[in-house]
Design a protein around this nucleic acid. Structure first.
Length: 276
DNA sequence: GCCCAGGCGTCCC
DNA sequence: GGGACGCATGGG
């Protein structure tokens, strides 16, 4: 499946390096691979198109939603420029971040991934998640575009992780987060189905997550809402965003953080600040 | 040895 | 509600 799209609307490099997903990797220049939904996907990009190495059906049923292809990020940028054109930092970040989209990732994987993320660097998060998948996920046998046969691993199920003891996660370098991972998996098994978090709105969802899930506070809950529930008003404040507030806005929370697309703008700023 | 990383639970006020 | 503190682990 080939999609005609500009790198300013979809950039595989920027998405892979934007800290929202941890299982998308560059293989060679312009080529990427990712695991999601227990599937393996290869992608490549040039100046005018992105190739999804899958059938048209798989693209339209799975990956178009995952990559949020129905959303026009150009329109978000235009609206933002109208409302906040005087905000120099935001305008610079938006230009630098052009091509980043908010992926619609699986809820459980997002929950566990961002529990792992706390007080860790992004490379370290990736290593922990890969170790977790290798140990408790299912092996997926894949034939790459090149013909090479490889094995990848799905993200573990909640049932699998909920049955573990803390010591079972020793090899995954998750440290004190082991108990959080297990508790969150048990919460997911017991309570997730009793809610409809997808349709319930950001404020309600974020409050349920932070009050019910041990190891989930305001920041992780916001990341789960943004990346796992696709609630674009969720605006996670991590150390980098706090640094932006302090260094670039004189410690005053900018108005755009309380808008409909705050999460998208937050992602541009996060990417921009980290690559400054 | 030090400081930092997409923070949170606990204790205390 | 907010501030201080401890927390596992790896990299610079």
């Amino acid at each position: 499946m080939i999609v005609e799209i500009s790198p300013t609307e979809l950039s595989l490099q920027k998405i892979a390096d934007s800290g929202q997903c941890f299982r998308m990797n560059r293989t060679r220049y312009g080529k990427y691979e990712l695991m999601a939904f227990g599937r393996y996907l290869e992608l490549e990009q040039d100046d005018h198109s992105v190739t999804f190495h899958c059938s048209d059906e798989e693209y339209s049923q799975i990956w178009s939603k995952y990559f949020d292809m129905s959303q026009s990020y150009r329109q978000i940028a235009e609206e933002t420029a109208q409302d906040f054109g005087a905000d120099e930092f935001l305008m610079d970040a938006m230009l630098e971040g052009q091509g980043i989209r908010i992926l619609h990732q699986e809820f459980f994987e997002t929950l566990i991934s961002f529990i792992i993320s706390q007080r860790k660097s992004i490379p370290s998060i990736r290593r922990s998640i890969e170790a977790l998948c290798r140990k408790y996920g299912d092996p997926i046998h894949v034939t790459r575009v090149t013909g090479e046969e490889i094995v990848r691993y799905s993200f573990p199920s909640a049932r699998m992780l909920a049955a573990l003891e803390s010591e079972d996660l020793k090899d995954c370098s998750v440290g004190y987060r082991a108990q959080y991972i297990i508790a969150a998996s048990q919460w997911y098994l017991q309570k997730h189905e009793t809610y409809n978090l997808e349709s319930m709105g950001f404020q309600t969802a974020v409050n349920i997550l932070r009050s019910e899930v041990f190891g989930v506070g305001i920041k992780v809950a916001s990341c789960v809402c943004l990346f796992g529930l696709h609630q674009l008003e969720a605006c996670p404040i991590d150390v980098w965003m706090q640094r932006i507030i302090d260094e670039d806005y004189g410690s005053d929370i900018p108005r755009w953080m309380d808008t409909q697309y705050a999460g998208v703008l937050q992602q541009y700023c996060f990417y921009y600040k980290r690559n400054l």
